[in-house]
Design a protein around this nucleic acid. Structure first.
Lengths: 160, 160
DNA sequence: GGTTGGACGTTATAACATAACAAATCTATC
DNA sequence: GATAGATTTGTTATGTTATAACGTCCAACC
């Protein structure tokens, strides 16, 4: 009884992992998709779909939510962006060659995201650990919360 | 500029990690909270707040959303339940002694969740990996997606 | 017995996401 | 270049998740 949101997430998960593996068709970067990608690239933090929508409307467009979600979904499918499930926001994929298993380091203070590929030794250990519980991992992005370098050194400062 | 939902999540994160560490005051298990906890315990899968609400209303109550969220938030603060950010659902904490770093293994097919404490070697490796990117982890639950034993052996069956 | 703090009730609304269908546009083929 | 089919976009409405803001009740404490 997975609901609509789950099926969407799974679809995004599946497609996003074909990133940079030659499995995907040639990009069809329509003006809409380019616009959304540029907005994500211009942001130093993940953006929610409605933050993207607000910025587009601030530029004078008349976009509605479905148009934003379609463009975002496409970018995620093509591996050009990631959807961070744990905070429900979108970021550009900062690497040209992202892996099936990757880590997204999300700073809980400033909200910035770093992407890291997962070390094979770490993945092997993780896989064997969960296998002890009879569990098999599907390719995914690990969303890890913590503090980035900058926020470690200014940890007391509230962020606005 | 973290929004309301982020601050709520962070509050839940912080409090939920005091679970089973003697830092928490005596439980005040009011009838409302007991009812919600019993519903979570009776479910074999994580429930969304609105699924809990529906079940309560099916029992003849007149609950409104804030009442459900208050009870759920309390249970999570006290470490009796976990909030799964990646799927926006709640589960009972299946262990009496859950750790600051734990793993929640979420079956993408049937939706069931297993909880596992994180192996110290794995945590050390993970910590050192992210430290190479100047990143410090905060205590958290790793939400890992995959297939449980049952669904591995019946992987072709659609789930209803 | 006043008052204080926590829990709960209630109304309204914010924030996130999609269903459903129509219109436009692109593309392949004849 | 006509046209059929597929893809993309526009548009309206709605579904889903979560909280703000306020009021009431009640038990503990002085």
């Amino acid at each position: 009884m997975l609901k609509a949101v789950d099926s969407r997430v799974e679809k995004l998960m599946v497609h996003s992992h074909r990133c940079c593996q030659g499995e995907v068709a040639a990009l069809k970067m329509t003006p809409n998709r380019q616009l959304v990608l540029q907005l994500l690239q211009a942001s130093d933090k993940p953006l929610s779909a409605y933050e993207v929508l607000d910025r587009l409307r601030a530029k004078g467009t008349q976009w509605q939510p479905p148009t934003v979600y379609r463009a975002l979904d496409y970018l995620v499918e093509q591996g050009l962006a990631h959807y961070l499930q744990s905070i429900q926001k979108y970021v550009v994929c900062p690497q040209q060659g992202c892996e099936q298993f990757s880590q997204l380091l999300i700073c809980v203070q400033c909200g910035q995201v770093q992407e890291a590929s997962m070390d094979p030794a770490l993945l092997a250990l993780l896989t064997s650990q969960v296998a002890a519980q009879h569990f098999t991992l599907t390719p995914q992005f690990l969303e890890l919360k913590g503090l980035c370098l900058h926020c470690q050194t200014s940890a007391a400062l509230p962020q606005t």
